[in-house]
Amino acid sequence: MKEILKRLFNHEELTREEACSLMKNITGEKYNNTQIASLLTVFQMRGITVEELIGFREALLSTRVNVDLNEYKPIDIVGTGGDGKNTFNISTCACFVVAGAGYKVAKHGNYGSTSVSGASNVMEEHGVKFTNDNSRLRKSMEECGMVYMHAPLFNPAMKTVASVRKELGVRSIFNLLGPLVNPCIPAYQLLGVADLTLMRLYTNTLQRLGIGFAVVNNLDGYDEISLTDEFKVMTNRYETICKPSDIGFTIARREELYGGNTICEAAEIFDNVLDNCATKAQTECVLINASFAIQAIEPQLPIEECVAKARESLESGRAMQTLKKFIEINQ
């Protein structure tokens, strides 16, 4: 570790193989907390390269609980978190809209850390029991097109750094890795980032990994398309900045996306959206994220057609039917 730290202090970069080996040593508890904290601090100050990020990802995935969903070619819809906006569960809502439109979704998530309700919180509020049993997950995918994977059940290596991350109390490379270590290694991904500087890093990484993707950011600092301002989209095929009005949506006010003060309140908003009785701002925010997720799967489709597919899923009731079936299967 001493030699690695010296190199990093000198702004040297690690190869993919070196990064992979380093992460395996970290999660294998070969370093003490002081050494790990120093390492995390260096990367937070210096930044991380695509090669290093891919190497770290490989190490974490090598210790995961494996999930075989390759034949379904699913999409994951996830944000990096940390935007401090306490929005309702927009990405998780979008998952059910996309699944209701006939696509396969494999959502990887956890409890909220910077918001009242994370994906796992809202799932538990609906009575969902988490599992890492492959047969149960495949049953859920077969019968409703939607799988939810509670991260702690699939990434045991992350427990080894939980204490030092808590003691540091700041974002680290592990926050960057979270959206990249879905245990089923999905074929597609809609990834929301709160910081524009991360867009290029994730775009280059996902391109290298061969994943069909859309990386999105609202220019006022949301880690999803919030419609509160212009937003940027980067995909395998294009890069653009859009106004909500460019694709038929209206500007939302920040307070309209607030996720409530309790998990119960967040779950009520979640249900209202999928039951197509939420506010216009809440509904449109979910629809636009679902639309770019659909386009990540079918990049040949114009975004207007993807919006129509997402809207039809919601207005026909299929999104809510997907949620109800999912809850029934996963209780």
Results as ranks from 00 to 15, higher is better:
268 E>F: 04
253 R>S: 15
245 S>V: 04
109 G>Y: 04
172 S>H: 06
177 L>F: 00
207 Q>Y: 07
238 Y>Q: 13
141 M>P: 00
217 N>D: 06
100 G>N: 03
195 D>E: 11
233 V>W: 00
15 T>S: 15
249 F>N: 08
46 R>I: 02
318 R>M: 07
20 C>D: 07
194 A>W: 02
254 R>H: 14
86 N>S: 10
162 A>S: 15
7 R>D: 06
174 F>G: 06
203 T>Q: 12
97 V>C: 11
5 L>K: 10
134 N>E: 12
102 G>D: 02
234 M>E: 14
252 A>I: 04
55 G>L: 03
28 G>T: 13
66 N>C: 09
258 Y>H: 13
199 M>S: 11
204 N>D: 12
294 I>Q: 00
58 E>P: 10
16 R>V: 07
184 C>A: 06
210 G>M: 08
41 T>A: 05
26 I>N: 04
167 E>Y: 13
7 R>A: 06
4 I>S: 03
312 E>D: 14
23 M>T: 12
83 D>A: 13
67 V>C: 04
164 V>I: 13
290 A>T: 00
115 S>P: 13
71 E>N: 11
229 D>M: 09
165 R>S: 14
104 K>D: 06
89 N>D: 12
4 I>E: 02
250 T>F: 13
255 E>P: 10
49 T>W: 01
12 E>T: 03
163 S>P: 14
44 Q>N: 14
48 I>N: 05
280 K>W: 07
235 T>E: 03
275 D>W: 12
86 N>G: 06
22 L>E: 09
180 L>P: 08
299 P>M: 01
134 N>K: 12
23 M>G: 09
125 E>W: 03
100 G>H: 07
71 E>W: 07
271 D>E: 15
219 L>F: 04
142 E>R: 13
149 M>K: 02
254 R>I: 09
139 K>V: 02
35 Q>M: 08
212 G>R: 01
225 I>W: 12
206 L>S: 00
8 L>W: 01
286 V>C: 05
118 G>A: 03
58 E>T: 05
6 K>F: 08
220 D>L: 12
15 T>P: 08
25 N>W: 09
282 Q>V: 01
